[in-house]
Write a protein that binds this DNA or RNA. Structure first.
Lengths: 191, 191
DNA sequence: TGCAAATTTATAAAAGTGTCTAAATATAGG
DNA sequence: CCTATATTTAGACACTTTTATAAATTTGCA
């Protein structure tokens, strides 16, 4: 990204970022990421190319900003003060809810080869990253003799995203309660 | 890919694929993937652009073919008949060995933002996929009441790649034996 | 070896990318 | 509200990508 979105943004900048975000999100429900051009995004958002390049290096850069934004938004509802294994189940459920609320996006990801698609690899990487930030905050203080804390939190977030991938692409007929049960089994070493 | 590499290939096709693979692999040790052009690949491999586009959709397509090829090659040494948890450690060690044998590639991945780099996300996805094929063959027959087999093998391959990422990018000073120990702890639910 | 079929190649052209200007516009702060 | 500063914009540019075509070459097989 050409700008730092964690710093203060003018109203105009926020408006522009949102327009590009929405344009990319909509475009993703319509066609493959490969087929989306910067021109498409500019036409949809009604901003000139030069403005696009003021904010982003390229369309992948916008895509990744979109994933980060979405990831943060989904997981916003997790309290960082409650520390328990239930939070991991809650993160998983929030992610599932997001995809159930956005079937067009999910369908497009599935169309381009499901869990093997670039789109999914890319998105899940960012979701995992956002999940890991929360998980780390929750478990960093629980010292384990057997394993370093960063490795454990990484393990937990990997687990959540792995189960999500399985649930969305491999076993789309499984119900959420069963998936929750499986998650708990994996978390408690019951396998 | 424009052709099916699992089907029979002519000698010429094999020669051409190898030339493109080697060209991309070498290019990756020299500069960022973003900066590599199809022209670079063609110059290195001494094939015309039209031939490149006979085989691949674009440079990302070649990259992914390269990762699959490398993944298969690294893990070729795993026997599919021996079924034990040791195989998981062996897969991890083979992957570590590959990166220790290819420091220029690793350095380039690290340079472009370590575990956050596109290159790594992309590569690790394919390594995980290849690892999962082997793990699934090893564990599919061990029925678990608590969890479906595809989920368990996915869990194991996630674990291996997660630990690899941690070992390569987060804790490059850890020794392989410690990493092996951590892997066993994670596999046995000792966390 | 020789021939039909498939593949590779040179070449051209349309479309997309990313950078750069200077003018137009928007912004924050007195 | 005004003004210095920063951002946005149009337009042009060099370059890369991707597709398409027909001729040249290579391939598998009899």
């Amino acid at each position: 990204m050409k700008i730092d979105v964690t710093k203060h943004l003018t109203l105009g900048a926020k408006r522009t970022l949102k327009a590009f975000r929405v344009a990319m999100f909509d475009a993703l429900s319509e066609k493959d990421f490969d087929r989306i051009t910067v021109n498409d995004i500019c036409k949809k958002s009604e901003y000139p190319r030069a403005t696009f390049y003021n904010y982003f290096d390229d369309k992948l850069d916008l895509l990744e900003y979109l994933w980060s934004y979405i990831g943060k938004n989904i997981l916003d509802q997790i309290s960082s003060t409650q520390h328990n294994k239930n939070n991991l189940v809650k993160i998983f459920n929030l992610l599932v809810d997001f995809f159930e609320e956005n079937p067009a996006l999910l369908a497009n990801i599935k169309k381009s080869d499901g869990s093997n698609s670039h789109l999914w690899h890319n998105m899940s990487g960012y979701l995992k990253h956002e999940a890991n930030i929360i998980v780390y905050k929750n478990y960093a203080d629980k010292n384990s003799v057997a394993l370093p804390a960063p490795l454990v939190s990484r393990f937990y977030s990997d687990l959540i995203i792995g189960l999500l991938e399985w649930y969305l692409f491999e076993e789309p007929n499984a119900d959420k309660e069963t998936a929750d049960k499986y998650l708990i089994n994996l978390l408690t070493g019951n396998f």
